[in-house]
Nucleic acid binder design. Structure first.
Lengths: 227, 227
DNA sequence: TGTCTGATCTTGGTATACCATAAGATGACA
DNA sequence: TGTCATCTTATGGTATACCAAGATCAGACA
């Protein structure tokens, strides 16, 4: 029974407590608030989040399945670490999926898709201008989402998002790199232009260049940090 | 509870109860014991499995993250359903990843890898001979695992396995199809031969043919069943 | 004195009981 | 007969208790 009370009070209803905690913990890991390799002690998290162990444990299972958390037997969960060997694999898979999506999108892009893509690109441009890396990451995500969704590749998009989560720390660093900012927008524009021209090969090539560069920057950063 | 097989294994359980339940429920879904779309009532599962709600709930979260289970708000979890639109996406992604893995494997395959691959192929052949679809599925999985692992693509292999889980019902039907049995082994042999010859393009092409056929069989079966 | 043992603490794993809410089923009453 | 209140069921969420395993440290014994 919907009464006037509900309108005034809260719009948070659709979210379950588990989802809220999931979002918070995911955000804490992605933003680096929980360091890589840090142990996630259940009872401590319960206190910090103000929820019961049941909720925390279920959320940890989800994060574990997402690859953000690793659980060692008899030692409990910890934030997953990332070495270059794994990160490279992730960039390689992204390359395959994003090329394919850009290709498909360029083939079938209609006026509506193109408009959305242009809008997303402008979002990236203004995010570049603002200089906030979080905003930039979101804008970039939005740009790719348009590509995947309009290509009808929902599942591939899910996979890419999950992979992006696992390299989020790298991704933030990469996006924040100076030279990336300069050429990054240019490369995004190339992808955008190729799709608007319905030119699949050019779109795939642009994605390839974009990701190859991102991977090499990430490699440099990761290896510099690792030592 | 304990089957005869378990006696042979180690007394101490390296497996946690959650993992056991996860394996059993995953198996029940993959084997079709839990029908597609069937609701998974927590307390019923507790009775059936003889474990507590904590375990069941955590396992459901994992299966949810794997895409085997979907949870509707205020109605609880149910076994995920699969339409052709989604299945096709999965086959497309598998195509990308398996082509890439076969390619990489063919490029770098050494004597050890080739020996393992031949062994895996013989496993498939004898599974064909035995005619048991479960054994065949396992043997096929083993064959691909050799390819992915030797190519150093652990993460892609994880993704493929997860995707395979989501189309397991289709996969079982596909593998059980008569004509598939005939040409399937031939195509597997082609993949095997191309890798042994260190011929990447041929390996990729063989994978492409293999999966394209599998997808078309799956499409026919799914659409026939759907109506 | 050195080592071994055991008590204790922490953490994870499991089970159970309890409450609140939403949705569907059921039955009573106008 | 139709509508509404209630009842049941199942879920989400919480709290708590118990046990097992590993680590740590202190004390006892050779």
């Amino acid at each position: 029974m919907m009464t006037a009370h509900d309108d005034l009070k809260i719009e948070q209803m659709p979210q379950t407590l588990r989802e809220i905690v999931l979002g918070r913990m995911r955000g804490a890991i992605l933003s680096g608030r929980f360091a890589s390799g840090e142990r996630l002690v259940e009872r401590t998290l319960c206190d910090q989040l103000g929820v019961s162990r049941s909720v925390v444990r279920e959320v940890i299972r989800i994060l574990e399945a997402e690859g953000l958390v690793e659980t060692m037997p008899n030692r409990g969960p910890m934030v997953a670490t990332l070495d270059w060997q794994r990160a490279k694999q992730i960039y390689d898979i992204r390359l395959l999926l994003e090329q394919s999506a850009a290709c498909a999108c360029a083939e079938m892009a209609d006026a509506v898709t193109k408009a959305k893509l242009t809008e997303a690109l402008q979002g990236i441009a203004s995010a570049f201008a603002s200089g906030q890396s979080l905003t930039l990451a979101e804008a970039t995500t939005g740009f790719y989402e348009v590509i995947f969704r309009s290509a009808g590749q929902d599942i591939a998009w899910e996979i890419v998002q999950r992979l992006n989560g696992r390299i989020s720390r790298l991704r933030a660093l990469t996006l924040a790199t100076k030279e990336r900012n300069v050429s990054g927008l240019a490369r995004m524009t190339r992808i955008h232009d190729a799709i608007l021209a319905n030119h699949p090969e050019a779109a795939a090539q642009a994605v390839r260049d974009h990701l190859t560069e991102a991977a090499s920057i990430a490699e440099r950063l990761l290896k510099a940090e690792g030592t």
